[in-house]
Amino acid sequence: MAEGSNPIEAPLAKVVKTHIKGATGISGLKRLSGGASQETWSFDATTAGDPVQLILRRAPGGARPPSETAVGLATEAKLIELAGAAGVPVPTVRYVLAKEDDVGDGFIMNRIAGETIARKILRDEEFADARPKLARQCGEILAKLHSVDRATLPPLRISPAESEIAQYRNIYKAHGHPHPVFELALRWLADNTPPPGTAHTLVHGDFRNGNLMIGPDGVRAVLDWEIAHVGDPMEDLGWICVNSWRFGNIDQPVGGFGTREDMFEGYEAAGGGRVDPDRVKFWEVLGTLKWGIMCTIMVTAFKTGADRSVERATIGRRSSETEIDLLRLLAPLA
């Protein structure tokens, strides 16, 4: 890409030269695919020696309206730094953008080599040695993540189980797509809500296959912290077990690559405290319902013309898959 051909290139180059030691400019700026809610740009900082491989994580168009659920990018950068200090594998944040930089809201971090596409991680020979280790590694990583001192956290929403149920019940009712199985799940969740007093920690909120950078050696980085919040730590353990994140490997409940037992053992061995399998199941049920309701939102976006992409219509149809998953969880045959 020729210098100046992208409106953010010149101001980004100025930022990099100012804040990345030894940088003389930038090269190879390109927007990566994926990232529905934030922009992800890959580029190199040029130096007198080897280039520094970097990522710009930026709000769409440079700015994003406040959200009830998503944290701001400066907060996301702070959470990444805190998680890294606790031993969670994360990219190093190099700089948080300021208004006067004229690049928009966002931050610059190191670019880590690896793969996030689940189909490749679960099937390619390159990751054959890593796959048996991943479930335990996920447990170990979550134990470290949940150990972050709450006193050091930036302001985050506190979202216990009751709040999560209420939020998604309201979304479900508002979109007017009747699903009897969703009604059944909502009743089950109300009857099985974890008791008051459950200890709360930092929760990633979207810890799953697809948001993990994987290499032949295993998990290299935890990505996409935008819906992090304070809540029940078992939420993260349940979310990664949702069948939709197994990508066809339904007999490997943790991300399609491992067992709950391996993840639980890794979590407890790394100091995460005792796992409560019943609470993990609660969050797996709630996570399955949440994804089903999100799929109905895609249907609405397609039907109203807000987004007529084939992707929206296809994802919208997947709500039926989550109904099957919910029935298997709530009324198992064996």
Rank of each mutant, 00 (worst) to 15 (best):
G205D: 11
A166I: 00
R308G: 10
L156R: 08
L97P: 14
N170A: 15
R246C: 14
R136H: 09
D206Q: 12
E268G: 02
G255Y: 05
T18F: 01
E68L: 14
R58Y: 08
K133I: 01
P332G: 09
H146D: 06
I214Q: 05
H229F: 13
E115K: 08
A23Y: 05
H175L: 13
E323K: 08
D217R: 12
R274V: 13
L79R: 10
P65W: 11
P66N: 10
P180V: 13
T193Y: 03
N249S: 12
E81S: 11
L32Y: 01
I8C: 02
Y168L: 13
V280M: 04
D44W: 02
D236M: 06
V181A: 10
A13T: 05
A59H: 07
G35H: 01
E261R: 09
L54V: 11
H179R: 15
I315G: 02
L286I: 02
A23M: 02
A174W: 01
V148R: 07
S33T: 13
T69G: 04
M294N: 11
Y95W: 15
G215V: 06
I121E: 06
R123N: 15
T198D: 09
S320G: 07
P89D: 12
L29N: 05
V242F: 02
I324W: 10
R187Q: 15
T75R: 08
D251C: 00
N192A: 09
S244P: 00
L145T: 09
R94E: 13
K99R: 14
V285D: 11
D105T: 13
G34P: 01
P233Y: 02
P196V: 12
R31K: 15
S42M: 08
W41S: 01
R57C: 05
T193N: 02
A48K: 15
M213A: 06
S33R: 10
D149M: 06
G61V: 08
V285I: 14
T201Y: 10
L122D: 10
I112Y: 03
R150Q: 13
N243M: 07
P60K: 14
R317T: 13
G238K: 01
S42N: 03
P196I: 12
A128N: 00
G114Y: 03
A118E: 04
D149L: 03
G106R: 10
E268C: 04
L326H: 11
R169A: 12
T259D: 08
E321W: 15
A45S: 09
R131I: 06
E284M: 10
V230A: 04
V16R: 02
E140R: 12
D262P: 00
R136Q: 15
I117K: 14
N243F: 00
S42K: 12
N110Y: 00
E268N: 02
V93C: 04
A228H: 03
S42D: 08
E321M: 12
L142A: 03
E81F: 00
E183Q: 15
M1W: 01
D191P: 02
G61L: 10
T75D: 09
A86L: 11
Y95E: 09
E235V: 00
G215F: 00
A59P: 07
E115A: 06
R58K: 13
P277E: 08
R150V: 14
L184K: 15
A270P: 10
H229G: 04
